[in-house]
Design a protein around this nucleic acid. Structure first.
Lengths: 114, 114
DNA sequence: TTATATACCTCCAAGTCTTAGGTATTAAAT
DNA sequence: ATTTAATACCTAAGACTTGGAGGTATATAA
């Protein structure tokens, strides 16, 4: 993903974002996730498909997500939802990321005098 | 680096943290950086040496840092400081990270109804 | 008829990190 | 006297994530 125009910044946050979105929506397909992130960030963050699909497949392989394919308007959609384990893991990983971000801010917000 | 006990979360933030610390301190050595981060985060974030030194060397190779070795108490210390380019780049990368973090929060803070 | 949006996928290269190892000095503890 | 902990630097191998490029296919709009 990127911010405004450029490069990848934080590797490791994508899977947490996916889990977070699925906590609220309980059923989403890949393309929908890319659009949702774009919407939420006013187009500033883009989830590339080359990152998204491998991430989804890994989460599924790890037992955090299950899939269900539907045909809508002649196109196949693969819906992902959190498993029981997925719900538990999601909460843990989100908390972990939140804690990390707080610590990151402690380092970044540091002023000249401190 | 880690939060509390575990794994790496955000790859890519280390070099920005280094640049940020050097904006304020204008001269730091590797070991000092690990300790500073530990202090600032109450021991919750640990910069591993296997990540730190390659990161410092890359920043130096990219022309953002210069080095100066001193012997203190019989031990060699390699001090790093921002170059002119380093100062400019630091500001840019910090702003970029800040923007990314804001967007990340837009995704993560999302409530069930939104 | 062509381009755009929707919708999935894989592979490769690049980059970052963890783990584990190495060297060496000084100070504290046993 | 000797071992451990703290200080201080370093590298190499492997895992993992990501971006970019490419591929397939349908529906709709231009």
């Amino acid at each position: 993903m990127n911010t405004s125009s450029n490069s990848s910044l934080l590797k490791g946050s994508l899977s947490v974002m996916i889990l977070r979105l699925l906590e609220d929506r309980e059923k989403m397909y890949g393309y929908e996730i890319t659009q949702k992130v774009k919407d939420l960030t006013a187009g500033e963050m883009t989830i590339t498909e080359g990152a998204l699909y491998p991430a989804l497949h890994k989460l599924e392989a790890d037992g955090l997500l299950t899939t269900e394919t539907q045909i809508v308007d002649g196109r196949a959609r693969k819906y992902y939802s959190l498993t029981k384990t997925g719900h538990t893991e999601a909460a843990g990983r989100i908390a972990e990321l939140a804690a990390f971000l707080e610590n990151l801010n402690l380092v970044l917000k540091l002023k000249p005098s401190l």
